[in-house]
Every structure is written in C-alpha cells, then in structure tokens.
Write a protein that binds this DNA or RNA. Sequence first.
DNA 1: GTTGACCTTGGACCTAACTCTAGGGTTTAA
DNA 2: TTAAACCCTAGAGTTAGGTCCAAGGTCAAC
Lengths: 142, 142
Amino acid sequence: MYKIGELSRQTGLSNDTLRYYEKMALITPATRTEAGYRLYDESSLSRLKFIQQAKYVGFSLEGIKELLSMRLDKSHHSCGEVKQLTEDKLVEIDNKIEELLRIKQALQVMNDACCGGAVSAEHCSILQALETGEPVKREGHL
Amino acid sequence: MYKIGELSRQTGLSNDTLRYYEKMALITPATRTEAGYRLYDESSLSRLKFIQQAKYVGFSLEGIKELLSMRLDKSHHSCGEVKQLTEDKLVEIDNKIEELLRIKQALQVMNDACCGGAVSAEHCSILQALETGEPVKREGHL
DNA sequence: GTTGACCTTGGACCTAACTCTAGGGTTTAA
DNA sequence: TTAAACCCTAGAGTTAGGTCCAAGGTCAAC
C-alpha cells in the first residue's frame, strides 16, 4: 500500500492531481489510515497507468471516465461500444486537424507573399491581407 | 456613427464581445453620447474586420494586439517584424498539427485492431492497449 | 521533544475568450 | 405616457485540467 506521495512518484502525477482525479471520480484510494491518509494498492496504480495512456491518445477526463467504466465491467460491454468511443475521438481529432490545416494554409499564403525585409510595413502584404480578407498577390516593391 | 448594437449587427459580434474587446484594449469607440452610449465610426468597423480576419487565421487576442499596433503605425515597423509574427504562428500551428497526428496515429492503430462487434469487451484490444501502452496486434477471437 | 517531511481539507486562483446577470438609465414610437 | 428596445456598469460564471495556499494534523528520526 502506498501513500499519495509514493503513488505520485510512481506515476509522475502531482499529489494535487491525484486528489483532483479523485474528486473527478476517476480513482479512489483502496482505504485510509486512522489518521485519514489515503492508501493505494496496485489496482490504483494500474488504473492510473490506464488513465495516463488514455490521456496520451487524446481522451478528456470525461471520456476516460467512460472508458474506465467499461474497463471495470468488461463483460457487460461490447467491443463495439468501446470502439465507438475511439472512433468518435478520431473524428474529433480529424476535425481539429482540418481546421488547423485551413489556418495553416491561409497563414502560409500571407506569409509567402511578404518580403519580410527591413523595409517599412507601409505596404506590407500581410497587413493588407488581414485588412481585406483577400490574399495579396505580391508586394509592390519587390 | 453607430451605436454598439449596430456595430454588432455589422460584425456579427455580440455587444458583450465588443465591450470585452474594448476592455482588452483592442478597440475604442470614437466617442460617447451625453448619456454615455458608445459611438463608433468607420475606422472601428475596419479595425474589427481586421481583428476578425486575424482571428480566422489563428491569432489570439494578444497576438492581434501586436498586429494592431503595427497596423496603426506602419511606418515605424518593418515587414520583417510583421512576418515574424506570422512565422511564429505558423510554427505553433505546425506543432499542434504534429501533436494531433501523433494522437491520431496511436488511436488509429488501436481502433483498427479492434473487431468492434457485439462481442463482450472481455478481450477488447483497445482496452488492452490502454492497459499496457502497447498496441495489440490482433484480437484473439478473430 | 522537536525538527522536517509528509499528509489532510476547503477553497481560491490560473488561462482564454467570452457570456450572463442584476440593477438601472435612455430613446423611440404609438 | 408608457412600453419596447436599447444602452450602461461591475462583477460573477463558464470550460478543462489542474495548481497553489493556509491552517493544521501525523510520523519518523535524532
């Protein structure tokens, strides 16, 4: 049985974060000492490893809570249910990527059109593009 | 001169958002009526269009503040300064995209390995992968 | 028997960009 | 003259995922 500091060392999560996860109902200490100290066992540790892994692949704490409930009661959940969660997450990630690519594209066009030199920004094509919403073809002084 | 509601209609931003931008020092009404009503002119409108465009290409309000100060005093800023901002933003976007691609890749591997059927999640490869941090090659029952 | 490391709680604070509320004043049209 | 539509302010609330703080209890070593 570990106290919170030991679990913190094992997982790399701070004491505060562990208590926060408890408040969010992601983990619970196996028991408490008479003095009220949290005591954790191996299952807490494996649960936390699971949580960290799920975080690493982009799940929010809410999503992780769902995953954990399926993990805890595997026999009453199907592969399909679990896979739905990862598929939803994949769609979400794809949308974010697409949005970022849109932004990147727009920025890139503006950026490429600008000379970037020490010349005054008077005719800067970036500022002009932001002004109009239209990409500028090429800077006049080039 | 428009009152705030009119500017709101012109820009699609809420009154609250306009007042918020003012508090963040992004805009200022040209003047006020005796009763204290904000009155805006064309320059406020063009400034807001600029802000909206900059937002659209991923700038934060802080970043926009920098852009605005260069826009306001173009002769004392160089193209290079402006371009630096867009280049920094591009790097930031690229990093975010890369992180999302990493996540997507990890999720995709897990997701592809799972049968996703109505079968019990007892041996679900997704749950196993989250358990171990190792992708599972193929589900046993396949 | 006291120092220092550890643990407890409740609650405040952080970021970013709003959004909403309460309580009140103004303008306009019927 | 009154009702609707508009405007004002200050300040609280929202989201996610923590982080920090104060005030205090516990435990081990020296």
